[in-house]
């Protein structure tokens, strides 16, 4: 099979929103359970590392340590929300609940189902990021009005991680193998994307690698510019990287899923 068959543009309609609505309805029925965990983990990091460890660090790139990691915590909450929604969440709906099978018996196509799932994943990122932004703002760690841009931006970066997650879901032989990308990709990204220390501390070659293959690097850079209120032309480059990666991974994930489910 030719490689181009993995990059065929999906044909979509407004019906992708029906899948988004389905997931939103489920989310709303268990709202309280859904909102607490995403709030808790960034708060723990902010306190333990920001206020705890941070007391030994006076100044890092011109800001206090907690100010340095606050934008990273926003970025990480986006990453976790959509990545896990479109890996474990989507896998359960696809394989155990047969939700996708049920939906494609209606006028919806599998392309629309997968796209709807990823749009929902991006929405989860927006919800989580918004909550963390509120906390960070209350702690006085975000500049306004720049930080308001984080909300729409979280949808874009959430979509990127949703597509990435969906690619792994499409090739995962069972649900347990999904822990591999979580441990081997997401966790290193959590640590080495300029989150807890500046990228410049890494050896040159690893810096290049972080820019080349770790999406979180670009997302952290943009959010940090927004929370500190120091905009830079380089953000444009970051954004182009994110948009291009999203587009490629979006098309790839839909085609991979189609190959897995339509036989």
């Amino acid at each position: 099979m030719s490689i181009m068959s993995y990059f065929k543009l999906p044909s979509l309609s407004y019906r992708v929103l029906k899948v988004w609505l389905r997931n939103k309805d489920v989310f709303m029925t268990t709202l309280k359970v859904n909102l607490l965990p995403p709030l808790l983990s960034p708060l723990l990091y902010l306190f333990a590392i920001g206020l705890g460890l941070g007391t030994y660090i006076n100044n890092i790139e011109g800001v206090s340590y907690i100010e340095f990691i606050a934008p990273a915590m926003i970025a990480v909450s986006m990453m976790y929300a959509s990545f896990f929604e479109c890996t474990f969440g989507s896998y359960v709906r696809m394989y155990y609940q047969k939700t996708f099978d049920a939906i494609i018996a209606t006028p919806l196509t599998i392309e629309e189902v997968i796209t709807g799932e990823m749009l929902w994943g991006a929405t989860r990122s927006t919800i989580n990021a918004t909550l963390v932004v509120i906390i960070v703002s209350i702690m006085g760690l975000a500049e306004y009005p720049h930080s308001l841009l984080i909300i729409p931006f979280s949808f874009v970066s959430g979509f990127l991680f949703a597509c990435l997650g969906m690619c792994f879901t499409s090739i995962s032989p069972n649900i347990n193998t999904l822990t591999y990308p979580s441990i081997l990709f997401i966790t290193p990204m959590f640590l080495f994307s300029g989150t807890f220390f500046p990228l410049s501390l890494l050896p040159q070659i690893l810096q290049y690698l972080a820019y080349a293959i770790l999406p979180l690097t670009h997302i952290v850079m943009i959010i940090r510019s927004l929370t500190t209120g120091s905009l830079d032309i380089i953000m444009l480059g970051n954004f182009v990287w994110i948009a291009a990666a999203s587009l490629i991974l979006f098309v790839l994930s839909v085609n991979l899923m189609k190959k897995r489910l339509i036989v």
Binding site: R15, K18, L21, R22, D25, V26, T29, Q97, K98, T99, D101, A102, I103, A105, T106, P107, L108
Partner: peptide
């Protein structure tokens, strides 16, 4: 077309009523 599949694939995240209601939404 209406389909009764071999394997039950009702939506376990929803009640009986919601299952039908959400499904009807897919048909506009």
């Amino acid at each position: 077309i209406g389909v009764v599949p071999q394997e039950n694939n009702l939506d376990p995240d929803f009640t009986v009523y919601e299952n039908l209601f959400v499904y009807s939404r897919y048909f506009d």
